[in-house]
């Protein structure tokens, strides 16, 4: 099985709203992350723009609809479309979510939590292996935000570690999700980070969240909060340099503002890494 290589440095989630502003010169991210579901099998404007951006930037695929935890069979027609798209655009990194989004052939377009059980570890690991065999390289799984926790005998970190161990997949550690879950479910995020397999981290997601009453929602609609940045610094102090991706899906500011935020992250974190 081939190894994958996540581009180094600081990436940005590519969004339609600033597509035409992306330029290879001047201030720019080191790479972009895209959801294949939003780009594949599209010609015309979107294909032309993505082809243009691909000429100048490395791309990473971050899927939404794999539904790795679903009791449904894997959707091979969908996976073939993803693989075809990745080959066309010469993308060699594929990450997805440790969750499910389909049942009985129906889809919800959101990330639903799976129970943290030994049975689910086996179920997901088996499917991850099938997907990895299909792609020919290891995939990367992201810890999700969950507002409701289905019954299960494992802690979240135990569950994640067990899946990584049994499947050979790598971890896309979403630090904002760790923070949001720690507040919503009352655990210490630093303890979580002490326990989870940081040595398996392929890259990191950071984003903003918002408070709705007593709950934090992972809206990706605000700047990264200081407490999330502190957690990120803690991780970097443990594992050193790792690719970092800034996500923004709601209240998307002008492209220039996103690049400024990415620059601030870069400065704050690079100073952490310099002894």
């Amino acid at each position: 099985m081939r190894r994958f290589k996540v581009p180094e440095g600081f990436g940005l989630g590519l969004r339609y709203s600033f597509l035409e502003e992306v330029r290879p010169e001047g201030k720019k991210p080191d790479w972009f992350e895209i959801a294949p579901e939003n780009w594949m099998d599209r010609g015309g404007y979107f294909r032309r723009e993505l082809s243009r951006i691909r000429r100048d930037f490395p791309l990473v695929c971050h899927g939404l609809s794999l539904s790795i935890g679903s009791p449904d069979p894997l959707n091979w027609e969908f996976l073939r479309r993803v693989r075809k798209f990745m080959r066309e655009f010469e993308i060699e990194v594929y990450s997805e979510h440790l969750s499910f989004c389909s049942l009985g052939g129906e889809y919800v377009y959101d990330l639903l939590p799976v129970p943290f059980t030994e049975d689910m570890v086996k179920h997901i690991s088996k499917r991850v292996n099938e997907v990895q065999d299909f792609f020919g390289f290891p995939i990367i799984l992201e810890n999700i935000t969950y507002y409701y926790r289905p019954k299960g005998e494992l802690e979240e970190w135990e569950f994640i570690n067990a899946v990584l161990e049994e499947s050979g997949a790598y971890l896309l550690l979403d630090v904002n999700n760790v923070y949001v879950n720690s507040v919503n479910h009352g655990f210490d995020p630093y303890t979580f980070l002490e326990k989870v397999r940081l040595d398996r981290v392929a890259y990191i997601h950071v984003a903003g969240h918002e408070r709705f009453g007593r709950i934090l929602i992972d809206t990706h609609g605000e700047k990264v909060m200081k407490k999330v940045l502190d957690l990120l610094k803690f991780i970097l102090s443990r594992i050193g340099k790792v690719p970092i991706l800034l996500e923004r899906d709601n209240n998307i500011p002008p492209y220039g503002d996103l690049l400024d935020e990415l620059d601030s992250l870069r400065r704050a974190l690079n100073s952490t890494l310099i002894p």
Partner: peptide, 22 residues
Amino acid sequence: MEKIFRVALGRDETKDQRLKIY
């Protein structure tokens, strides 16, 4: 899993505020 899925699609009602988020 079926429960959360049915609530997420709006097929089942729930009093659980956290499930309603989905």
